[in-house]
């Protein structure tokens, strides 16, 4: 939950957040809709170049990819077996479908490309700037608030959880497979809910006491510099190229 990639002085970090939000959105849409393997393979280097420019810690990036690919792994277990068409391999009742494998490959490439794109463009921006950029781009207020409060309160809940868990541990709690353990975990979740709702109420009260009326203001203002325009053009060209390859009918 910590904004591990948000701090930095690289050209990517200093890029205008509005540019980053627009490109990240366009890139995600193109990749999500593209079906051609050539396009998907050409999509992967795009975020990789940006990540290299942002000098992000490769280990931390891999760790994030690992989380996504755990979910993807489940798909590899399910889809090739559940799909019909072009049996690659038959093991008794189990049929490994060629169509299924192709779909899985596509999903794997797509999800990794999109996650890498978000890491490169969105994670390198502090949440406040993202929220501010979204406002500048005329996104609905409610959507913007939803994003901000999700971030804010998931963070709060996580900290509360850590505190409660420590309090349990110092009283010699060790998870076992018995009723006491299950009950204790249920209490933990219940308390967590109550405490989080209480705290979120107080945070909101503190915000309105300081004149919050539904609008976020950012201390550092954006101004579109020449570098931003150049970077925007280059990145937009790459995304456009992917789109043309997929739907342009050139090949």
């Amino acid at each position: 939950m910590d904004e591990v990639f948000a701090e930095g002085l690289s050209p990517i970090h200093r890029l205008d957040p509005r540019v980053k939000v627009v490109i990240a959105a366009a890139f995600s849409v193109v990749v999500a809709l593209a079906e051609d393997f050539a396009v998907l393979l050409l999509a992967i280097p795009f975020p990789l170049v940006l990540i290299a420019l942002a000098r992000l810690n490769p280990k931390a990036v891999l760790k994030r990819l690992l989380v996504v690919n755990t979910f993807v792994l489940f798909l590899w277990f399910l889809i090739p077996l559940g799909f019909r068409g072009g049996e690659l391999l038959s093991l008794g009742v189990l049929n490994l479908s060629k169509e299924g494998v192709i779909w899985c490959l596509r999903i794997t490439l797509k999800s990794n490309a999109i996650v890498l794109g978000s890491i490169a463009l969105l994670s390198t921006t502090p949440i406040f700037s993202l929220v501010h950029a979204m406002r500048h781009l005329r996104m609905p207020d409610k959507l913007v608030h939803l994003l901000f409060f999700c971030f804010r309160y998931v963070h709060v809940i996580e900290r509360e959880y850590g505190r409660l868990l420590k309090a349990m541990k110092v009283r010699a709690f060790e998870p076992r497979s018995d009723l006491h353990t299950y009950r204790s975990y249920a209490y933990l979740v219940g308390t967590l809910l109550l405490k989080s709702s209480d705290r979120s109420r107080r945070v909101y009260q503190a915000m309105i006491c300081r004149g919050f009326e539904g609008k976020y203001w950012v201390l550092d203002h954006f101004s579109l510099r020449r570098g931003d325009v150049v970077a925007f053009s280059l990145m937009a060209a790459w995304v456009l190229w992917l789109g043309v390859l997929q739907w342009g009918g050139i090949r």
């Binding site: 009260q205 004149g211 201390l219």
Partner: peptide, 21 residues
């Protein structure tokens, strides 16, 4: 509880929150 009050990433942003509002 100061934790209820501080909610911005940096100290400067938090202090500026009210004045900007």
């Amino acid at each position: 509880d100061p934790d209820d009050q501080l909610f911005c990433p940096t100290v400067a942003e938090d202090v500026a929150f009210g004045p900007l509002n």
